[in-house]
Amino acid sequence: MPGAALRPSFWRDPRLAFAVKWIASVIQIAGYAATAFGVTPLNLYLFLGGVVGWLAMGILWNDRAIMLIHLVALGAMLAGMASG
């Protein structure tokens, strides 16, 4: 198909990246607020959603630093949730 190489794939669409990063950020901020008001365990699930969203952003952007930070955070959160 002519011009197909010029169109970004779904995963490279800047609108997808914009939506994922802002949704993940809002979820993570909600996790901070839930922690501040002592709303547990909801705060952990909100943080989990934010971390997974930012891990997805690291993968979309092929940014190893973002991937590393959020993989470590995800592992620590899952280990803490499993032990507690």
Rank of each mutant, 00 (worst) to 15 (best):
W22F: 05
W22L: 14
W22V: 11
I23F: 09
I23S: 06
A24Q: 01
A24V: 05
S25I: 03
S25W: 01
V26M: 08
V26C: 13
V26E: 02
I27C: 14
I27P: 04
Q28W: 12
Q28P: 00
Q28R: 03
I29Y: 01
A30M: 11
A30C: 14
G31P: 03
G31D: 07
Y32D: 06
Y32T: 09
Y32H: 09
A33L: 13
A33N: 01
A34W: 08
T35M: 09
T35Q: 09
A36P: 14
F37E: 04
F37L: 10
F37S: 08
F37D: 02
G38C: 13
G38E: 13
G38N: 14
V39L: 14
V39R: 12
T40W: 04
T40R: 10
T40H: 10
T40D: 06
T40V: 06
P41R: 08
L42F: 12
N43V: 01
N43P: 01
N43Y: 09
N43W: 05
L44Q: 09
Y45K: 10
Y45I: 05
Y45S: 13
Y45H: 15
Y45V: 07
L46F: 11
L46E: 06
F47E: 03
F47A: 05
F47W: 12
L48Y: 02
G49T: 07
G49P: 12
G50T: 10
G50E: 06
G50L: 11
V51I: 15
V52E: 04
G53Y: 00
G53S: 10
W54Y: 14
L55T: 10
L55A: 07
M57K: 01
M57S: 03
M57Y: 05
G58N: 12
G58H: 06
G58P: 13
G58T: 10
G58C: 11
I59P: 00
I59T: 01
L60N: 03
L60W: 00
L60H: 03
L60M: 14
W61I: 02
N62S: 13
N62D: 13
D63N: 15
D63L: 11
